[in-house]
Design a protein around this nucleic acid. Structure first.
Length: 114
DNA sequence: GTATTGACTTCAT
DNA sequence: AATGAAGCCAATA
């Protein structure tokens, strides 16, 4: 798998900023990582995220709050479980963005723009 | 080189 | 709320 390691690292580190108990979307993370329009790449890259980086991939969901995996699939169940550990309620394979969507504060946004 | 494929998003029904 | 089409872009084939 030869993907762009540099971009991948940006995505991983960006994902690591999502605090416990919050979620974000693929597109939003792509934007923060400086890669607008590459939501699909975020998903691909998260799949390759090394274990030792402890990337909280479970906190990334679709823009409508649904988990990206098919309901009932092994991955979806695992993600739901991990989110539950974070204190996030998962219902019908989705979470409430109203309650959990991560809004980075101003200082964090500034630290990112590069 | 073109075609297909996604852990996606948005808009229109 | 649910579907579907079109757009998206890097990776694969």
């Amino acid at each position: 798998m030869n993907f762009d390691r540099n971009k991948a690292t940006r995505i991983w580190t960006t994902a690591c900023r999502i605090p416990k108990g919050r979620v974000s979307s693929y597109g939003f993370i792509a934007d923060l990582a400086g890669l607008p329009g590459r939501a699909r790449m975020v998903g691909k890259v998260l799949h390759y995220a090394p274990e030792e980086m402890c990337v909280p991939w479970q906190r990334i969901v679709k823009s409508n709050g649904q988990i990206a995996f098919a309901a009932g699939s092994k991955s979806a169940q695992l993600q739901s479980s991990l989110l539950h550990d974070d204190g996030v309620i998962v219902f019908n394979n989705r979470v409430s963005l109203k309650r959990y969507f991560w809004k980075p504060d101003f200082a964090e946004l500034m630290a990112m723009e590069y």
